[in-house]
Design a protein around this nucleic acid. Structure first.
Length: 277
DNA sequence: CTCAGTACCTGGTTGC
DNA sequence: TGCAACCAGGTACTGA
């Protein structure tokens, strides 16, 4: 499911639904999702009795702020949170349930079981993996052109691979990287250190604008992803290249092409995004 | 150190 | 229709 705009939509929705609820118990059905503390029994012990005070986000991570504990959660490819009445039968792909004292429960569902959860003492989460490894969000004032250009100058990787690197800029995934590169008129296989200052500037602005617009639209819905309230994002209407292979570029009419870059399906307009500049 | 490839999982789609 | 191969919005780890 999730890149930054989808995670932000989940954050806002979930905040309306579960703020101030108190955990009575936690059930864990797939231990590998729990990364810290590693023992699920200990994990449960840390959370019992805690009341949810806020939900933050950094990059693609949700940060649930409880009284004394922070829960850092990554949804990876297919993780979803949803609020339900307790006592219903456990669906096949529910792997963690947070039971609240008011008779509701927050379920974590994840078909592929790739998601992760880390607990920290409150205020410690930014000092440890995984959050400490993250670069700034695309619209963060710390994401400056000077910072970005220097990162690009230092690597031989394809530009797409650098944009996907969460330690450079946090929150872009396969959809928004393809969309940002299209909007900046850059081919995903351009070598990062050969990107000019002017091109880096275009790409930085395109990344922030694409993400900002997607956040406003509630993210992108692909297949059947629904957010915590069952609402769908609308940004898919704005997609120019992602999933548009064999359709005509809206700017020049050339058919969009799908290729593989950095091991990921990648969508480009061969006319608007030439390999050489 | 950098970076491409692989592992982690399940299920839907494609193509023979 | 049957079934194997491939693909999926992500990232951690391995070893060249």
């Amino acid at each position: 499911m999730p890149e930054l705009p989808e995670v932000e939509t989940v954050r806002q929705t979930l905040k309306q639904l579960v703020l101030n609820k108190q955990i009575s118990d936690v059930s864990v059905f797939w231990d590998n999702i729990i990364k810290r503390p590693q023992d699920p029994v200990e994990f449960k012990g840390w959370l019992q009795g805690q009341r949810l005070r806020d939900i933050d986000r950094k990059g693609k991570f949700l940060i649930f702020q409880f009284d004394d504990i922070s829960l850092v959660s990554h949804l990876r490819m297919e993780g979803k949170f949803g609020l339900y009445d307790s006592g219903l039968p456990k669906p096949k792909h529910t792997h963690v349930i947070f039971h609240f004292t008011d008779g509701t429960e927050l379920r974590y569902d994840d078909v592929r079981k790739f998601g992760t959860m880390h607990l920290f003492e409150k205020g410690q989460e930014l000092k440890h993996k995984p959050l400490v490894l993250l670069g700034p969000d695309p619209f963060d004032p710390l994401f400056t052109l000077e910072y970005f250009y220097e990162k690009l100058q230092k690597t031989n990787r394809h530009i797409k691979s650098v944009l996907l690197d969460q330690s450079v800029v946090a929150g872009l995934g396969n959809i928004y990287v393809d969309e940002a590169l299209y909007r900046a008129r850059l081919h995903p296989e351009r070598i990062a250190k050969e990107i000019t200052f002017e091109e880096a500037s275009r790409l930085k602005e395109a990344s922030a604008e694409t993400i900002n617009k997607a956040v406003k639209q509630g993210g992108t819905t692909i297949r059947s992803y629904l957010n915590g309230q069952g609402e769908m994002g609308m940004f898919q209407q704005e997609l120019k290249v992602y999933g548009k292979e064999d359709t005509d570029c809206t700017d020049c009419g050339t058919p969009i092409v799908k290729l593989k870059v950095s091991g990921r399906g990648t969508h480009v307009c061969p006319h608007c995004q030439p390999v050489t500049h």
